[in-house]
Design a protein around this nucleic acid. Structure first.
Length: 780
RNA sequence: GCCGGAGUGGCGGAAUGGUAGACGCGCACGACUCAAAAUCGUGUAUCGCAAGGUGUGGAGGUUCAAGUCCUCUCUCCGGCACCA
């Protein structure tokens, strides 16, 4: 039986808090500010499972804690609602994605509302709201103005199932689509691409400024993949082509010091293809090999399997600039078109891959002394030092309906213009069918009355509509889902502003996000958002160089069977059911107690009973309030522990500390003062039961509006200390001395103990080590 | 292959170099009950009757003292991957 009537009081207090608007944040803070943010969710049709709110509970606890510590806390929530799933749902159910998104959001909100979360809903945002995506489009126009958005026809990742292009970040390591696991192909399509590589260096450097988990920083570092190296020109000879045979090939290497050992040059099939297109004629078999390899590479996009190395001699030779030797040029499948210059100098003696290839095709292997520096070699042989990044530019277009339209039109000649700022947003039009065409064109292309638009070009070079203007055509691709989430955190600061994405006065005081909490987005969202933020900084729209100061990762909650919760396995636990059975506070406490916050853990329908019991025992203690206290030390110790643990997101040990205190209070005696302190530190974790108890104690204001209790150092001093006796490092008993006893007292007292008499006796110890209040180690 | 993270009771896990297993679950026994649930109490790493010994994936090392630091090694998880 539950002592605390959660069915009655949870809802009652939630209503009260709402009425009193205790969580609304002023536009400009009056006190010290803190911005606590969750990675906003995609409102899927499946609704919440118990794993979803874990992060929200943590930020709720943290922001309640900070509020009690006198901060003005900004803790908002919104929806990342563009994207494929909503569109796929719409196709299947013949329903406008906007409708399903609306439904899903209201369902999510209802589920969240039962948990007593302290979101300031007056700031709710939604990426699919034209008032929001107006500014997503605006940012794009600015990127274009600064030369950071360009069009490309280069082959990109294409998912045949989703029928859209994908960014590299959307492709799994095994070459499958992140969404649907279909093999991704390479397909040349006209695409908008953002020049994220321009920011690679700054994104790398500024990682040092961030209080993020080291693992995430490293993942970003690897993703950016900076490598310093050098380029050299190798003169080509024996070239049969339309030129005069004076061609050269540019190679990239990080090991310029091994130049003397280069025994052949290997070029990628893509490079060879470019040479063919330029009129290169070659010996038999090469062209076939190149075309086959290109075909292979298009199909075999599985990066986890290293294909067997193959190659063919091109008929061309090159001159090693260091040795002057004539060395053969091979076309090889292990040299990749998109990497470096698409051509390498092969040094079999110092590179495993080159060695493997050299052995297979009987190419010379030349051992050399490595006594030259890279700088020397570059200087001596006319090389050029270059910095390369593994990260590629961001393919920023999707051939789908449910996304932000580009604010872009073209004139008859195909010249591109941005839609004038005054005419943003470019609204997403209604269509009859959301089905992707699969041709590389978006479904928007079919709506001619939208695509064709009359207007003129302003003096600024932007496009404005006018019924008597010329005909322009709109861009029909849409932006990827990552667009809105790359800047949404700024919009919470000033959600209704229609003059700017955020007003500078407001931005200046609230930015950056102080604590950002969410799941694993090490190389996607967190890369894109940092890129856009730095760009916004450069154009003066924001005042900080980084968006998120501190990042806390959350570990996922697995189903009881250890698998991911999913409809497919039928193992989903719905928070509504848990709230129904135990109340919101039990769910909250259990999710925080079950494991360290950043660790993945499986749900347990039996373990949750422990958290439930704990809250009941807290509630029951109200009948045991007395007039004397034997737990004062413990109360202060607990305040200290809980205070420090919340700050560090160590919620599991904070709860455990409160459990220890409750155990003690049950056994000993305590006052109303002690009990009040317990309720105050429990309040962020279990806001409903705490509020109810606070009320029952005769308080008329909310416990969530009280000041966080300060612990008193002087009260942490214990009366006695239990010292363990170690003889040669082995535990041989314990004894009690007054707290903070001098070493001399401890070393005298120890002689009276049984352990000492038995193991040391009359011997003179060789050495005695005393750790105050803890241990005495006697070496004999 | 490279880079991270982690290996502690039946389970989730706790431990500023200082009594390993806190706290919780589970389990066992007991109380209450006609009975069950709930609740409360006691116990619960392991070997041993005991004294005592052994124990934090494994092997070494540093130290008065190691789950914690160092070296090597095994296993699992995550990220990246023919990146020149």
């Amino acid at each position: 039986m539950k002592l605390y009537d959660y069915k009655k009081f949870d809802a009652y207090w939630q209503e009260k808090w709402k009425e009193n608007k205790i969580y609304e944040t002023p536009k400009l803070p009056h006190n010290k500010k803190i911005y606590v943010l969750d990675m906003f969710p995609y409102p899927s049709g499946e609704g919440l499972h118990v794993g979803h709110p874990k992060g929200y509970i943590a930020t709720d606890i943290y922001s309640r804690f900070k509020r009690m510590n006198g901060f003005d806390v900004l803790h908002p929530m919104g929806w990342d609602a563009f994207g494929l799933p909503a569109e796929q749902f719409a196709i299947k159910n013949k329903m406008h994605p906007r409708m399903s998104v609306e439904q899903n959001i209201s369902n999510f909100k209802k589920q969240l509302s039962h948990l007593g979360l302290d979101y300031d809903w007056s700031r709710e945002i939604n990426t699919t709201d034209p008032k929001f995506y107006k500014w997503t489009q605006w940012i794009f126009t600015k990127l274009y103005e600064k030369g950071l958005a360009y069009e490309s026809n280069a082959p990109i990742n294409w998912c045949p199932t989703c029928k859209t292009g994908l960014a590299n970040e959307d492709v799994n390591a095994d070459g499958t689509c992140e969404r649907c696991d279909t093999k991704v192909e390479k397909k040349p399509i006209r695409q908008w691409v953002l020049k994220i590589t321009d920011y690679a260096d700054r994104m790398l450097k500024d990682l040092d400024l961030l209080q993020w988990p080291e693992g995430v920083k490293l993942a970003q570092k690897n993703w950016i993949g900076r490598s310093e190296g050098a380029e050299f020109d190798f003169k080509l000879t024996d070239v049969k082509d339309h030129t005069d045979g004076q061609m050269s090939v540019k190679i990239f290497t990080t090991r310029a010091d091994t130049l003397y050992g280069a025994t052949f040059v290997a070029i990628s099939a893509e490079t060879a293809k470019i040479w063919f297109d330029a009129g290169w004629e070659t010996i038999d078999g090469v062209k076939e090999y190149v075309l086959n390899t290109l075909e292979e590479q298009k199909k075999e996009n599985d990066y986890s399997v290293v294909p067997e190395k193959t190659g063919v001699y091109s008929g061309i030779n090159a001159i090693n600039p260091a040795t002057g030797e004539k060395i053969p040029v091979w076309v090889a499948n292990y040299v990749l078109g998109g990497v470096g210059t698409g051509a390498i100098m092969a040094v079999p003696a110092h590179d495993e891959r080159d060695l493997e290839f050299a052995k297979k095709y009987n190419l010379p292997i030349k051992e050399i002394d490595l006594d030259k520096t890279i700088d020397e070699m570059v200087k001596k042989f006319n090389g050029k030092k270059v910095v390369r990044y593994k990260m590629e530019d961001w393919v920023f277009a999707r051939q789908r309906y449910w996304g932000e339209p580009f604010p872009v039109v073209r004139d008859k000649t195909g010249k591109v213009y941005m839609v004038d700022e005054s005419e943003l947003p470019v609204l997403l039009p209604e269509v009859e069918s959301y089905e992707p065409t699969g041709t590389g064109e978006s479904p928007l292309a079919a709506i001619t009355e939208w695509v064709n638009v009359k207007g003129y070009i302003t003096e600024k070079g932007t496009f404005k509509q006018s019924s008597d203007g010329e005909i322009f055509t709109r861009e029909t691709n849409t932006m990827p889902q990552w667009a809105g989430s790359s800047w949404y955190y700024l919009r919470f600061l000033d959600p209704d502003n229609d003059k700017a994405l955020v007003s500078p006065e407001i931005e200046k005081v609230w930015q950056p996000v102080d604590v950002y909490v969410g799941g694993d987005h090490a190389t996607r969202h967190l890369i894109y958002a940092r890129f856009w933020h730095k760009f916004l900084y450069d154009i003066g729209a924001v005042s900080t160089v980084e968006p998120f100061s501190r990042l806390e990762f959350l570990g996922f909650i697995l189903a009881e069977d250890g698998r991911k919760m999913s409809k497919r396995w039928g193992n989903i636990i719905n928070p509504d059911d848990v709230v129904n059975e135990y109340g919101a506070d039990t769910l909250r406490v259990y999710e925080m107690f079950m494991a360290p916050f950043d660790q993945t853990a499986a749900w347990s329908t039996t373990s949750i009973k422990g958290s439930d019991k704990f809250l009941d025992r807290v509630y029951n203690l109200r009948n045991k309030i007395g007039s004397t206290s034997t737990v004062l030390n413990d109360v202060h110790k607990t305040i200290k522990k809980v205070t420090e643990d919340i700050e560090k997101f160590k919620f599991n040990t904070a709860i455990s500390a409160m459990m220890i205190l409750v155990n003690k209070m049950e056994e000993e005696s305590f006052t109303k003062e002690d009990y009040s302190l317990l309720i105050m530190i429990l309040a962020p974790f279990a806001p409903h039961i705490s509020e109810q108890l606070w009320n029952e104690l005769g308080n008329t204001t909310s416990v969530h509006k009280t000041d966080w209790p300060k612990y008193d150092e002087s009260k942490l001093v214990e009366e006695n200390a239990t010292i363990s006796i170690q003889i040669n490092g082995k535990l041989r008993g314990t004894f009690v001395v007054p707290f903070n006893s001098e070493d001399i007292v401890v070393s005298e007292e120890v002689k009276k103990t049984e352990g000492y008499k038995k193991y040391v006796g009359e011997q003179e110890p060789k050495k005695v080590i005393i750790v105050k209040n803890r241990i005495i180690n006697i070496v004999i």
